[in-house]
Design a protein around this nucleic acid. Structure first.
Lengths: 230, 230
DNA sequence: GTCTATATGACGATAGAC
DNA sequence: GTCTATCGTCATATAGAC
């Protein structure tokens, strides 16, 4: 039950946001929305034409919040690598999953171009931002020169989204963190690669040898307080 | 409507498997199962105590099929890296998503230890198999010595699971493939890394230089015909 | 704008005839 | 084992009083 100080319309949207995050679109009933928002039966239909329209308002707001909070980290201080690391390590409600990404598993969201649009646009925006950071970091040696920005960006976003899957399957946040550490270790290792990342398939006769000087074991940016996940 | 030659019990399980894949647990009704399976109303309750028990049978079978088909690729020919690549590139129903992974977004699956167990065990099995391959590949120079098997395995599985999210959000398989290519480029690059993958944070003064000899641009194993996704 | 009352069909399950 | 009939509840939405 949402507190007062908010209009009925606002409470309906906020209740719907929470239910969509927790139960998805098919698992969210108008009745549950009405009860959680504290609105009477008919009120929902006064402000919105029906469940799809209310869900659209809720999804759009969640998408905007996600862009705002992720943007704050990606625009933060540090080298491109450090900002990618800050994004990967930022505080998340891991076991609740991503309020945007989880909608892609909902048949009725995917079936509706209108409902899918904000989901698609948000994840696309995130990939473009990360791709830009990777491209920028290649110039400074923060990322390997052979890496493709869009490919790495897709890998980063996918690792996060898949990390939620692993965490929820196991009932523990550990798997999410493990996957993120693996990705970070690959990003670090590739920056020190002797060969471009795009062509040579690694076979037996590779024999990685020397040990480069570790210069500043920068412990990267501290986690941003945002509680919203993605 | 499933064809004959199958017992009613079989048709119920198969229908449930399809519906769980497409619509999840909360989006799958006994009525839809009965209609798709061609069974009468009461038949479902003759063979199973209710929706949860039938779903459990369906999920267990899907989990077993996924282990079988993934295992065939992971046990296939080639170096450890090539087998990981074959796994990442194997044929998938990308836009349908992973029939196991998608269940983690279902509140009633996650809330039930019994229903979540086969999901957890399957993804855990997959991670362990991949971790073993990475460890094995480190010996042969197929993977960088500094990489942690369990971490990379979690990254691989997460990239696949997150790739489904990106693909379904955009309505195209392209994003899945892009993420996989990014991960493969990182795995290849790290194998040529001059420094161990675990410690040094990449900063500006890194200057990756030389270009190693590409030896065999092995186009890796051909895709396995399995249509099941994961 | 907000509420109560109500409607139609779907959901999840049971009873019992064949 | 399979089917039809039925049950109580919930999902989604409308009507209309206040």
């Amino acid at each position: 039950m949402y507190s007062d100080g908010m209009s009925t319309r606002e409470r309906l949207i906020e209740a719907t946001r929470g239910l969509l995050w927790e139960r998805g679109y098919v698992g969210t009933s108008p009745r549950a929305i009405q009860q959680l928002s504290g609105a009477g039966q008919g009120s929902m239909y006064h402000h919105f034409a029906g469940k799809p329209e209310l869900a659209l308002a809720a999804v759009r707001r969640t998408a905007q919040e996600m862009r705002d909070s992720a943007g704050a980290v990606l625009d933060g201080p540090g080298t491109p690598y450090e900002r990618v690391e800050a994004y990967l390590r930022r505080e998340r409600d891991v076991l609740r999953g991503c309020p945007i990404g989880r909608l892609t598993m909902d048949p009725e969201i995917v079936a509706s171009d209108e409902l899918r649009a904000p989901v698609d646009e948000t994840l696309d925006w995130l990939r473009e931002r990360l791709a830009g950071l990777v491209e920028e970091g290649r110039e400074g040696g923060s990322f390997a020169p052979g890496l493709d920005g869009e490919e790495i960006a897709a890998t980063i976003v996918a690792t996060v989204q898949g990390g939620y899957v692993l965490a929820r399957a196991s009932g523990s946040t550990a798997a999410f963190d493990t996957g993120v550490r693996g990705l970070l270790s690959l990003l670090r290792a590739s920056a020190h690669a002797a060969a471009p990342a795009n062509s040579p398939a690694p076979g037996r006769p590779s024999a990685p040898g020397g040990r480069a000087a570790s210069e500043e074991t920068a412990r990267s940016a501290t986690a941003v307080p945002a509680r919203t996940a993605d």
